[in-house]
Amino acid sequence: MNLTLKVWRQQNPSDKGGFKEYKLSGISADMSFLEMLDVLNEDLSEKGEDPVHFDHDCREGICGMCSLYINGQPHGPTQTTTCQLHMRSFKDGDTITIEPWRANAFPIVKDLVVDRGSFDRIIQSGGYVSVNTGGVPDANEIPIPKIIADEAFDSATCIGCGACVAACKNASAMLFVSAKVSQLALLPQGKVEKRERAEKMVAQMDEEGFGACTNTGACSAECPKEIDLSNIARMNREYFAASLSTEKS
């Protein structure tokens, strides 16, 4: 198939950037979206032009490194990661607009590459159970109801890609943060610190400059791992309970 691509090009963070148009032909429907970009980049390289920079790594939908806002939706028209999006989702003659994630807390590095270090810093603020290696009880010491373990698993499947932030009209990171808060609040191992964790992670989220949640549900609707909005409600509960109950002023 033949396609027209409108791709955001930006040399570096301080460059103003803008769209550039490319024509591509001979694209097979079996290609993944990123393989289509590989074709573009090989073309550009052969012509001596700087290839389009974009993040990607595992190409099987699990590492969370690929991003891209494709035709007005994060990861494109299907609810999956960009690496699992295939060209059969497009038609011959389509124009495809490709933009980077847009958020204050995800500054652009180059072209379509953004810096999601803010997510790492949020996890560092409390997204863990404070146990050291060794000296832990036997794995079967604390039984966990299957339904709770499954629910925690659903929250834990977040791949940290940032599509939730990209989709949200407020660039809010609530779905990402709440998925981790939920996973650990549900499991007995994480319950010990659940209050402090919610407080710390919310504080860090705010400090990073993410927007506030207005419950539009866009995050969950676009999340490639279908993380549920109930996580956000749970985090709200945990946070307010923490504010009211933790014993420090």
């Binding site: 806002y69 933009e99 847009r102 958020a103 009209k169 660039a171 927007g211 539009t216 549900g217």
Partner: peptide, 21 residues
Amino acid sequence: RHNKKSRPIGYAVSKASENST
């Protein structure tokens, strides 16, 4: 105002109707 600041540069193409009311 806070939310606007969280995304200083918007998208050129947006299909928000696909994911929210």
